[in-house]
Design a protein around this nucleic acid. Structure first.
Lengths: 199, 199
DNA sequence: AAGTATATTTACCGAATGGTAAGTTGTCAA
DNA sequence: TTGACAACTTACCATTCGGTAAATATACTT
């Protein structure tokens, strides 16, 4: 078997959580999409929360790994930052599900974290801040300042891809395809101009 | 009476929808917060969907009005664009609920719109695109290109304020306050650098 | 062949969901 | 004083939610 049932559960669940959010997606609907029952899902993951946690952890880990690879390959911090940000938004098209999940997690986390106590994304955000600090960007010297910049760049990079389905219907396929085609270079322009601003 | 029951319902509902999303917030919890029953809510609004629609419509209208005021007061399109974007993110702090609702609506709308058929935010986005076109920004001449830019700026402006509660807990109040303090000027820098880039 | 995990199902459960129907209460006008 | 209407409440309802318990089926080990 190429993909185990467990792995199928993970990918279908990720898709549905991304589309509908944690509360909008039900374990029953996830299982039904695989022609299984929700009890089969619970057998593998114990609870909805644990299933969700595993997905988020996976995303966080893969993002951290990508960052560390970039840092190993690139010497200059400013180049690292550019590569990381550019890589971040290019990954949106490869894996829009992950972007939507991250976005939703940052929106929803507070309430869920009160119970779960998990900060899946903190190591990821911290790593990005580290790079910004090392890159010595104008007006982003302290960690809070750097975090603000990280957040704005993430927002710019992720906001559009995440609402792609809405926009696609709102403006029609053709307009949207043009938008999508120009989006990468548009974002690169934004990042570049900010990175090379001087004090 | 300063605020009618109906108006109280609207503002409490807006808050809860912003915090928990459409599916996460229940009409019962909204009513309970006002020490009323969910049937009182249904009496005023008919259904959860209609209540939500009224809130979104209100936000869209007030945003459109703000844009038209700016356009009336400012002659130069480029200044208009700057004023609109800056006003956009400054409004985040005045009314973070509205930002979160807009963000969630763009994330969730597709599925809900299949039933409801509403595009609350389209006139608002269209107005922003109009301004970008008129402002004649480099590499944002066509409507799809302009929409991409609008989206990135909105993303940068709204992403951080919207996840304020999460970040505040994740990094602690003090760090977060510093972040918040520097955020406005940080975003202004981002917008400025993009607006004045040349082809 | 028997035993033993693993995978999955059927059958429940209590709680919460959005919504309907039918009252009750209060206010204001004729 | 009565009638009408708006503002609510109590009482339900069917559905869905996440989760438990127990049975069954499958596959691997011995």
């Amino acid at each position: 078997m190429a993909e185990s049932t467990r792995e199928k559960f993970l990918s279908v669940a990720a898709k549905q959580f991304a589309e509908k959010g944690f509360y909008g997606a039900s374990i029953a609907s996830i299982a039904t999409e695989l022609s299984l029952t929700k009890q089969a899902l619970l057998h593998h993951f114990g609870s909805k929360e644990k299933l969700y946690a595993e997905i988020l952890q996976e995303i966080s880990n893969s993002n951290l790994q990508r960052i560390s690879e970039i840092r190993a390959q690139t010497a200059e911090p400013k180049d690292q930052l550019e590569a990381v940000i550019v890589g971040e938004f290019e990954q949106q098209y490869a894996n829009p599900v992950a972007s939507a999940l991250i976005m939703r997690e940052l929106l929803d986390n507070e309430r869920r974290a009160e119970k779960a106590g998990n900060w899946f994304l903190k190591p990821y955000l911290d790593a990005l801040v580290d790079i910004v600090i090392a890159a010595d960007v104008a007006a982003a010297k302290t960690r809070p300042e750097a975090l603000a910049l990280v957040y704005q760049l993430l927002g710019a990079a992720m906001y559009l891809p995440v609402s792609v389905p809405t926009l696609s219907k709102m403006y029609g396929k053709r307009t949207f395809e043009e938008l999508r085609a120009g989006y990468s270079s548009e974002l690169r322009r934004l990042v570049q101009s900010r990175l090379h601003t001087r004090d």
